[in-house]
């Protein structure tokens, strides 16, 4: 049996009072010694920042294991759930406080929502040097506190968005 999937729709302009929550982007507390920052800006096809986007991250911890703990919506400060959410600010900037992902080819799995974007986009932000050969897109780059990954919705240096093979 294969059921037809329910189509997506834009997150719209008014998600700001509904989806963000206290602690959403702090997968770990910033004071934790091994905390890193993953941040970047979202740009539209004119190169302007997108101030009404919502970015979600889903990742392994440094040990490479897939987190199976609940608690992302009410973080206890100790449990690493591997998932977080960050709305962009006025300058299109988003940031997460998290841990370095592990495993053989470590990356952050990223979901992008925005007003004006009719369905969500998925991508991978590989750590520098971790992307497979011939990966067509940019990887995250290191900065002094972690990694930077900008998202370009349209244009010459458009982010490589992913489509997944279906069963």
């Amino acid at each position: 049996m294969t059921l037809a999937p329910t189509p997506g729709q834009t997150v719209g302009p008014f998600f700001g009072y509904a989806l963000p929550y206290d602690g959403d982007s702090h997968l770990v507390p910033p004071t934790r010694p091994d905390a890193i920052r993953l941040h970047g800006r979202v740009y539209d096809g004119a190169g302007d920042p997108v101030p009404d986007a919502l970015i979600e991250v889903w990742q392994t911890g440094p040990d490479g294991a897939v987190p199976r703990a609940a608690g992302s919506l009410h973080r206890d400060g100790y449990t690493f759930t591997g998932w977080g959410r960050a709305a962009t600010d006025r300058t299109g900037h988003f940031q997460f406080t998290t841990l370095r992902p592990g495993g053989a080819t470590p990356y952050f799995a990223i979901t992008v929502f925005a007003r004006g974007l009719l369905d969500r986009l998925l991508t991978r932000a590989y750590l520098p040097g971790a992307a497979p050969e011939h990966w067509p897109g940019a990887t995250a780059r290191a900065d002094d506190r972690g990694f930077v990954f900008d998202i370009r919705l349209q244009g010459e240096d458009e982010t490589v968005f992913l489509a997944y093979a279906q069963d």
Binding site: W58, T60, A70, L121, Q154, E158, V160, F161, Y164
Partner: peptide
């Protein structure tokens, strides 16, 4: 108009973390 990708998405097989979703529980 300025917020849609113009390039075809890159086809991949899901792997690792992508084969799982975050867990939410009664604490959430």
């Amino acid at each position: 108009i300025l917020r849609h990708p113009t390039k075809a998405p890159h086809q991949v097989d899901p792997e690792g973390i992508e084969l799982w979703a975050p867990v939410f529980g009664q604490r959430d």
